[in-house]
Structure formats: C-alpha cells, structure tokens
Nucleic acid binder design. Structure first.
Lengths: 238, 238
DNA sequence: GTTCATTTGTGCGTATGTATA
DNA sequence: TTATACATACGCACAAATGAA
C-alpha cells in the first residue's frame, strides 16, 4: 500500500474528536487543506469524511464546510405507550414536534389494510417532524380514518398532544399494537429534511396504534436519522 | 448541462433488479463495461454500486465480481421470548446457528453491570453466528456468570438449544428484560464475518435476559447486517 | 438583487495494489 | 503463474450551494 490510506485519515480525525482536540461545532479544515496535511488526494479525504458522516461524527454541508457534529445520540423507548416526550429519555435536550403538512387522501394500500378500512377509504394524512435541540431527528407520516376522526389534525394542533386529541373522540387510552424497524439508505429528500449527509442511513419505523380492545386507530411511518437514535425496549413496559 | 450521474446509473441497475432483468445470483458486467454502457467513468459506476451494496441489492466481491444479492430480508420478532427459530419468521429460509468460540474471561464493565456481578467477575463468553440459507445475517457475543452456569457453553452445544441448557440449571423459563437497537457503520472484521460490503451498516442489538422474577441470567451483543433484517415488535408478545 | 469567493459535489482520466479463480 | 475484477490512490476540471460584499 505504502500510500496514505483513507482509513488512516478517518482514524486521525476521529481521534481528534474523541480526545477533544476538535469539539462540537468546530469547522474542520477544507478538503484541500486536509489533503495537504495528510499528503493525500482530495478523494481520499472525501472518503474518510463520508465515513465519519455515516457514523454521525461530522456533518458535511455543501457550500459551508465540514463541522464536528453537535447532536448527541437520543434514546427512544419503544413500548406499549407511545407518548413522544415520555419516550425520549431525557438527556438534557429540548424535544419539540412540528406539523409540516396535512391532507385528506385516499388510503394507500398498506394503510387501509393496517386500519382495517376499505381500499381507497378517505384518510387524514399528517406529516410531522421531531426536533431535539432544534436539530431534526425524525419525521413521519401518520394516518387516521377520516370518518372516525374528522378534523383530527386540527384538534391535535389545538389541544397540543395526540393523547388529548384522542380523548376528544372519547378514546381514553391507546396502545402500540405493532412496530417494525428496518434500516435503509436515505433518499435525497430524507437527507435534506433531516439535515444530514446523503450517506447517513435512516431507520424506518412502521407502527400501528390501537385502542385497548385491539381496534386500530392510526398507523404511521417515521424516518429516523440512524446516527442520532438508539431504540430501547423494556420488558416492564412491553 | 449534466453528464451521466451516478444516481442514474444506480436507478437503472436497481430497476434491472426490480423488473427481473437481473435476478438473484446474476453477475453484473464489470465496472469498466458498465462505465462504457452508461458513457460514464469508472468512479461514477463504483459510487452507484456502493450505494446498491449499502441497500443490500448487490454484493461486491473483490477479485470475483459484483452479483445480485440472493438474500431476502428476514423478519426478526423482538419480544419477551427470544428463542431463535420461533423469532425468525419463516420465509422459506433455513436458519442455523454455529458456535465460533468460547472462553472464560473477566467480565467487561457493561457485562458485570448488566448481570449484577462484581467488577471483574469471571464470565463465560461465547460467540455464535446465525446463518439463513448459509448466508450470515448476524453474529454475537453472549455472557453468562461462570459461577452460576459452569460449563454453560458445553451444555448449550450438547443439548442443542439455549432453552434446554437453562433447564439443566433448573431454569424453566426466562424472558427478555431489555433490548436496545442502534445503527452504525461496520468495521472491517464485521463486514468480513457477515460476508458483506464494508459500506453496509450494521444494527447493534444489546440485550439482557432474566428469569421471570427479574434476576438477569445473560447479556448479549448481536451484530446484524442492516440490509438483511427487519425487527418487529407485537404488543401481544411485547 | 447581484456578484463573487469559498467550499463541497460530481465527473473523467490514469496508475497501481490486492484478492480470486 | 496468469488473467480478471475490484480497491485505492493521485490529478484535474467544473457544477452547485452558501454567505458575504
């Protein structure tokens, strides 16, 4: 080999971060500068930076530069209860959630199946994004039966929480019925929405919520930044 | 004025797979051949193939060639019960598990904490690999208290299942106490063990099993190929 | 609003190393 | 041993995004 390999570049920068020679928010030297520092080509530097970006250690931003990632990894509790703030285990971060869009659409096939509706039944589709310290960690789409939950999105927005919105329809309790998690690479749009590099994978979480008697009331698909979250499941909370 | 971009190359090959113009096991043309076909440079072709490899669609093997991935995505049921064959939802695949190594070691800190042992207590460390249709999908390390479960690994091997091994120590039932899942990029060794490309991320599953009264009996860390598995959690078995 | 310098993104060419059969 | 195919590395040029003048 004898030439400078990109793994060496990666390891050195990773050490710089680990030993606090570079701290959160710091801007790294430009790619040409790093290339010179390591007596390497820009391609090798870029490969090293890409790997660090996939691990969530740095954030590469076209036109601006490359920065040491500030976001800590969040821990999200998957269980029977799915209340957002209860489930994001406190780590000194401020968690917030914003409505992006809402629409009345005909149910996609997987939605009508999950909610036990007729194919093409009308459903309310709402898209929300979750931020931790103003940095996106996840965004997703939620579906409710339009007939059972008229104006759900508006009520959710006015009442401030999903739990309260359900209560306004007479649902005092609801549970997570099923959850699936898998990993895949991000699309361009997903990377942009999560403000992360295109090479960072995402974790796709599909879920169905139901009343205690087993009647499904909503289904959702949430895209998480794979670098920014750990899921935990405790037996005590199912 | 754009030239042929690597995303176009990626999408075309992905379509070839999706529409069965290329099927599992097929060898793709060589990189220079693909470069010619798409009127692109080899770099662009490689970037496209890397992306496909991260998604588990192709398998890139140095010295051999690039092939359409044969492995389907498995579904693994995470719940209170953790019996391997029950949890890998049948999909026409043959699942097997092999012992790689076993040793008596002093407990790493996270292990002694999880098992409520003294720091540096002796534990039995066993490493196993799980194969589906003879292709690795996961490998992991499991720890048992050496005093409570003398010769655990040998008994597990003779009796053929973890459940039976526990029974031989008088434990009739055990439950998953805690599970955590997160994503990260693979190390060189992990990629080699899983026979996957270095760019495919892995899902790290840390878990603690316990008797029904809550006494921890084992902890494990399993590395899954992120491209080859979906985790599901059902409330009924939650 | 436009221009401009800065920085990352994409692309091509070329050479050589390394694993496999 | 040899041929094949992917892996790594360097260089150069231009595109696209960003932010400040």
């Amino acid at each position: 080999m004898t030439r400078t390999s990109w793994t060496q570049i990666k390891d050195e920068i990773a050490d710089d971060i680990r030993f606090r020679r570079l701290v959160a928010g710091d801007q790294l030297p430009t790619e040409p500068q790093l290339a010179q520092r390591f007596s390497a080509g820009r391609h090798s530097v870029r490969k090293a930076l890409e790997a660090l970006a996939r691990e969530g250690k740095v954030s590469i931003e076209q036109g601006r530069g490359t920065f040491v990632e500030a976001a800590p990894r969040l821990t999200y509790q998957v269980g029977k209860r799915t209340r957002l703030r209860r489930n994001l285990i406190p780590q000194g971060v401020t968690v917030s959630s914003e409505l992006i869009s809402a629409a009345r659409v005909t149910a996609p096939l997987r939605v009508s199946k999950a909610l036990l509706l007729d194919p093409d039944a009308p459903v309310l589709e709402s898209r929300r994004i979750t931020l931790a310290n103003d940095l996106p960690v996840a965004f997703g789409t939620m579906y409710h039966c339009a007939e059972r939950f008229p104006e759900f999105v508006e009520r959710r927005d006015v009442l401030g929480s999903t739990t309260e919105a359900y209560r306004s329809y007479g649902i005092e309790d609801y549970l997570r019925q099923q959850t699936t998690i898998h990993s895949r690479s991000a699309t361009q749009d997903e990377a942009k929405t999560l403000k992360q590099h295109i090479d960072v994978p995402v974790l796709v979480v599909n879920a169905v919520d139901a009343t205690p008697d087993g009647t499904p009331i909503s289904c959702s698909r949430v895209i998480w930044s794979a670098a920014r979250v750990t899921f935990t499941m405790e037996q005590s909370d199912g």
